[in-house]
Amino acid sequence: MIWELDFIILTLVIFSGIAAITVKDLLSAAILFGAYSFMMCLLWAIMGAVDVAFTEATVGAGVSTVFFVAAVFHTTRDSKD
């Protein structure tokens, strides 16, 4: 664990999380959620959970973003909140 990095990244994670749920465009939300996952992955690497970080890198950053985009592609980008 590297607490300095952890602290900064945790803050960033929280901000990107808030951004992901407040932004009014679903594609942006999906992308921001990707960013959230990136930083989550970083957080886990910082805590020494390499396998978890690896999984998050492949799943959160890659596949789930693609899934989100695919779903948004078939629905709508529009969102009221």
Binding site: A20, I21, L26, A30, F33, Y36, S37, G48, A49, V52
Partner: peptide, 30 residues
């Protein structure tokens, strides 16, 4: 509170990741 279903799904994922973060935090060892 969100009305949009995809937003809810994102929220759900954030919730789950938060729990994952909690667990990983319990593992940390100075």
């Amino acid at each position: 509170a969100k009305n949009n279903l995809v937003k809810k799904i994102i929220g759900m994922n954030i919730f789950q990741t938060a729990i994952i973060l909690f667990y990983v935090s319990t593992a940390a060892k100075r």
